[in-house]
């Protein structure tokens, strides 16, 4: 259905969200799919601009601290964060090392949906993975470097 998307667009309009904030909200919505690689890549590139970086962090922080019913917001914000830690600016790494407890305390996230399914498990696993990544300086460096290399190669092939 198109309704949630339309509602979100209306909300983005009435609350006066900027383009960047809307993009992050879109990528971390309650829809059952996504975020797409294209969406995440676009947001990761935005973090290289100081103003956009602040807006991305603020919107992501809101999503990460959302309530259980909106577990998809939390899960997708973690997915987006994982992507940005690999492909975004160094500032993302610094910001989340500083605020690691936001991710760390999601390791016991609990939410059981109407069907009795423990959907919190997805959040818990992702929170564990990202915490480990943030605490492993060498691995994070290597993964960021190889991601950068791949991007350069791909851009090189396109040129």
């Amino acid at each position: 259905t198109k309704l949630p998307t339309a509602l979100r667009a209306a909300k983005n309009y009435t609350k006066g969200y900027t383009d960047t904030q809307s993009k992050v909200r879109e990528a971390t919505s309650n829809d059952a799919w996504g975020p797409s690689g294209t969406q995440m890549n676009e947001i990761a590139q935005l973090t290289y601009n100081q103003n956009d970086f602040v807006e991305v962090m603020e919107t992501m922080d809101k999503r990460l601290n959302d309530k259980g019913k909106n577990w998809r917001h939390v899960f997708k914000a973690l997915t987006l964060l994982d992507y940005c830690l690999h492909a975004g600016s160094e500032n993302v790494v610094i910001y989340f090392k500083d605020n690691i407890y936001i991710v760390k305390t999601l390791k016991e996230f609990v939410y059981v949906d109407e069907a009795g399914k423990d959907v919190g498990a997805n959040v818990r696993q992702k929170a564990k993975d990202i915490t480990n990544l943030l605490q492993d300086e060498d691995r994070l460096r290597n993964e960021r470097r190889s991601r950068g290399d791949m991007r350069d190669r791909m851009l090189g092939n396109l040129a």
């Binding site: 605020n99 016991e108 996230f109 609990v110």
Partner: peptide
């Protein structure tokens, strides 16, 4: 104790 409430207490201290 609901984790979401415990979490807020922990996050506050940080």
């Amino acid at each position: 104790p609901k984790q979401k409430h415990v979490r807020k207490c922990i996050v506050y201290t940080w």
